[in-house]
Simulated assay, not measured.
Amino acid sequence: MRNILLSLVLLFAAISSALAQELTVKSFKLAGSDLTAQTQYRKDLNDRNCALIKVGIGLQGVQFEGGIMGNVENKTGEYWVYMPQGNRQLKVKHANYAPVMVTFADYGVEKLESNRTYELIVVTYPQYAITQNVTNQSLDSQHSTPQTHPTVSDNTISIPVKDGISIDMVRVEAGTFTMGATAEMKDPWKEEKPTHQVTLTNDYYIGKYEVTQALWKAVMGNNPSNFKGDNLPVEMVSWDDCQEFISKLNRITGKTFRLPTEAEWEYAARGGNKSRGYQYSGSNNLSDVAWFFDNSGSKTHAVGTKQANELGIYDMSGNVWEWCQDWYGKYKRSSQVNPTGANSGSNRVRRGGSWGTTARACRSSCRHYDSLFDLGRFRGLRLVLSE
């Protein structure tokens, strides 16, 4: 009897592990100004032009079901799925995730129209209810296979701003880490040395995503970005622009948002006290977690479409550089507590690499800097909320 119960527990754990991650829809909408369905068309069986769904998901090996015409095209950073007009659903599947059925009416599209292009953003999300507290301690010693995806904390908050826009934030617990060019960081720059111990004594919340254009527009009433799209990270913003944005955001919400210190940024990028010692934020395979020079197609991508890091934070490697609060200064060997950078200077720190940088610049220890007034298609921001 005891062996039977143990077998059932192991079977349940195996099923739970298999379903520990699911696919979920972030957005689905008509891309009104996108003429791809007309210019790169595919005919249905009635000789009418199909609808085209561009699926941004950031995973390889994705499969689709639901009246698809011809082969799915795997483009840089997205899949092109052609479907006849009138279709109402599309199923998205991947071997490592529970599938998702996309019912178009749930997103204001009753059915697909011929000759129209649609944009579907699908992200990965952990199903914690399945795996939480299910004899984890007793089974840990019996399962030594490493997990292929980070274990993501559900310790998040969502803060409403306006017009239905909110800010999702992840709690980062206080802790001590080694900052700079640690052993796993390949080919570091001199600016990342020497390594030094840093202790952050206070918990803080950091943005789950980079600030999007939708959020920026809700606060500022404008969109300076070169690459347009509500779910794309805002760019073409200087450090001074970010301060103005944060000041207005704080007046709207009554909260105290700010840019992260450089130490807070690196600690969160490394996974905080859940860190597994990856070179990039969430993986040693950069393509899993980042839009960068090799896979971006020379543009930004919707936030949260790559794999999250150990804390459940997205895009801390790649997509856009993220401004930090600190003045840039050289590192010292001495241990530090709650460092805030140099006392003064002419340049502010930016972190994380971007869609246009090589892998070297996307490492969690990499640091660069610019003047307060520099802006460009590579620079954006992520928020921090102090407790």
Rank of each mutant, 00 (worst) to 15 (best):
Y331E: 09
V198L: 12
G56N: 08
N319C: 01
M1Q: 12
G376Q: 10
F104Y: 08
G318K: 11
R351L: 02
D154E: 13
N115A: 15
L383N: 04
V198Y: 08
Q279N: 09
L259Q: 07
I159N: 01
G304A: 08
T131H: 03
Q336C: 06
S17Y: 13
I206F: 04
G66V: 09
C324N: 09
L59G: 00
E73Y: 10
I53K: 04
D168H: 05
D203L: 04
H368D: 14
G356R: 06
R276K: 15
S346E: 14
V349I: 14
T176N: 03
S17E: 15
Y314W: 11
N115G: 06
V123P: 00
E119W: 10
K43M: 15
K255W: 05
S334H: 04
G175F: 07
F28R: 03
F257A: 02
E78F: 15
N3H: 11
N136Q: 15
D106W: 05
K26P: 00
E322T: 12
Y107M: 07
T131Y: 02
F12N: 13
G67E: 02
G180P: 05
E73N: 09
G70V: 02
L11E: 13
Q85N: 10
I167S: 04
R348G: 06
F104C: 03
G329M: 04
S247F: 07
N338P: 03
N87L: 09
T39C: 00
K332W: 00
I159A: 07
Q197C: 06
A51I: 10
I246P: 08
L139T: 14
T151C: 00
G67Q: 01
S354Y: 09
E110Q: 14
I4C: 05
E119A: 14
T357Q: 14
R116M: 03
S141L: 10
T135C: 13
P233K: 07
V303S: 08
K208T: 05
G271H: 12
L381G: 06
P99L: 09
P194Q: 12
T39K: 14
S275K: 09
N46P: 00
S317W: 04
D47F: 06
W355E: 10
Q137A: 15
